[in-house]
Simulated assay, not measured.
Amino acid sequence: MRRIDVIGIGFGIFVAGGLAYLFFQSVGLDSISAGIWAQTLLVGGLLGWLLTYAFRAVTQTMTYNQQIKDYQQAVLQKRLEELSPEELERLQAEVEQEKEKEGKCSSGN
């Protein structure tokens, strides 16, 4: 996110708080109550965003993590495409041997 985006979002939240304050005053609340309710709304929104952020961080579904996974997939795909048919066949045989070893180990327990 660019610095100007952060400034824009901050300014937008500031304006939203002012509009919420004016709305609550227009509905008939006094200035203190309108301020309290406007702050409650903003804090509630902030806590909601924070919870979604924490959830995405814990489940690793953030943009950065997804970009790394996509990059790793692309690198592996490129390496597979560059293998000769003989190398690919040898690699597949190794994978099959590993699967058989894992199958024997887990069934032996």
Rank of each mutant, 00 (worst) to 15 (best):
R3I: 15
I4A: 10
I4D: 09
D5L: 05
D5G: 01
D5T: 00
D5W: 04
V6G: 06
I7W: 13
G8S: 14
I9Q: 04
I9N: 01
I9V: 11
I9F: 03
G10K: 08
F11L: 15
I13L: 15
I13F: 13
I13N: 08
V15W: 04
L19M: 14
A20P: 01
A20L: 11
F23V: 08
F23C: 04
F23I: 08
F24C: 04
G28W: 02
G28R: 03
D30Y: 00
G35Q: 10
I36L: 05
W37Q: 00
A38I: 10
Q39F: 05
Q39T: 13
L41K: 02
L41Q: 07
V43Q: 13
V43G: 00
G44S: 15
W49Y: 02
W49E: 04
L50F: 11
L51R: 08
T52I: 12
Y53A: 07
Y53M: 02
F55G: 04
R56H: 13
R56Y: 12
A57M: 00
A57F: 03
V58W: 06
Q60D: 05
Q60G: 06
T61A: 11
M62I: 07
T63V: 09
T63F: 09
Q67M: 13
I68Y: 03
I68C: 07
K69V: 11
K69L: 01
D70H: 02
Y71F: 14
Q72D: 14
A74Y: 02
A74Q: 13
V75N: 10
L76V: 11
L76I: 11
Q77T: 06
R79K: 15
E81C: 02
L83D: 12
L83E: 14
E86I: 11
E86H: 06
E86T: 09
L88G: 15
E89D: 14
E89S: 14
R90Y: 00
L91G: 04
L91D: 02
A93I: 12
A93S: 14
E96S: 11
E100K: 08
E100L: 14
K101D: 07
E102V: 08
E102K: 09
C105Y: 05
S106V: 15
S107K: 05
G108D: 12
G108T: 06
N109A: 09
